[in-house]
Nucleic acid binder design. Sequence first.
DNA 1: TCTGGGGTCCTAGGACCC
DNA 2: TCTGGGGTCCTAGGACCC
Length: 396
Amino acid sequence: MKHILHIDINSFFASVEELLNPHYANHPIIVAGRTKRSVVSSANYLARSYGVKAAMPLHLALRLCPNAIIARPHFDVYRNYADKFFNIIAVDFTNRIEVSSIDECYVDITHLIKEHITPYQIAKKIQNTILSKIKLRCSIGIGPNKFLAKMGSDYKKPFGITSIYQEDLPTKIWPQPIDDMIWIGKATATLLKKHGIKTIGDIAKSQNKQIIESLLDKNWIVHYQRANGYDSDELDYAHNAPKSIGASETFLEDTSDWEEIKLKLVELVKNVVERLQEYQMQTKTISINIKYPNFVSQNRSLTIDHHTDDYEIILLRAIKLYHNNFLDQNVRLVGVSLSHLLSNDKLTVNSELFDDYVKTDINVINKNEISVIVNEINRQFARNIITTADKKNKLR
DNA sequence: TCTGGGGTCCTAGGACCC
DNA sequence: TCTGGGGTCCTAGGACCC
């Protein structure tokens, strides 16, 4: 049998903010952006005691907890702490780690278990080491697979350690509502509850197999097996390259102003292309994503016939995609995403040759239209930079 | 003062090819 | 004279996670 840990840093962003600002001690802390449409990214346990939760609109959180300190996020610092966190485990314990998000990982400790060394002792040692070296508390779940390990790290927070093996299912897993089962989200939970499936134990029951199968897609069997303590999902130790790179932004006010949207697209494309180049990758598919004021989203994407990391090509495609599909629509959010990514060193052909060809091609087909857009973008962009600089000067 | 932003994975239909 | 079967790729949408 394997022994897997799931390690999760407790209220990660808020905890780091407390470390950066010692005078925050004993205050409710909410990490959130600064606009009226911001939501809570992270909250410390004091803030949570007022009912504040992640993803809650900031104004609502402040109504629940008016004296909370709002900390602006510092993602670079968080990434730095995350690196230290994973490094401590890799160097002091084992490199059999799957990093699953900025503040979470799975660790296979099967090979570390000896006659007088239990999984719990290793977990405790990791927890204490993380606390003493980077002053962050984590919750750890222990189990024979990823699912039970993750359910374990959720079981007792903060600073808990929970073992869940097959014999613990009836007491620790089955009584829980299905909403608390990992990978069962709001949509699936609502559907199942409507048909009387209310607890994880209900999913595990063989007499409910047929009803679950009829309600869910073919993934139903995965949920059924997990509810019974089985999970065949193996740890993935590879440091995987990203599958997509995206950026999106919600406007302060909904807008249909093409000039404003165009500027935002320029900004977003700049952002994603820079990250694409940092990863030393190229893209083949460009997607535009919008959200209407009623929260309905739409995507439009375009796959080109070769990989590229060329800013101009990607920008023109993005602008055209938006222009052809969403012009004059009133939107709340606009986003750009790149997918079908490939590492530069895996490219078999020189994409620059294609890029040059495509550019001449674009110019032949849409010469006037494209040059008008490019000129317009350049003009708008220059103007925007100047006004931003002016504002800064005035502030000084 | 209603509801962010970064992702991964899956499904399903249609085009196209052999 | 009435319509296969397998496979891949593209596109759009949606569920779910932190």
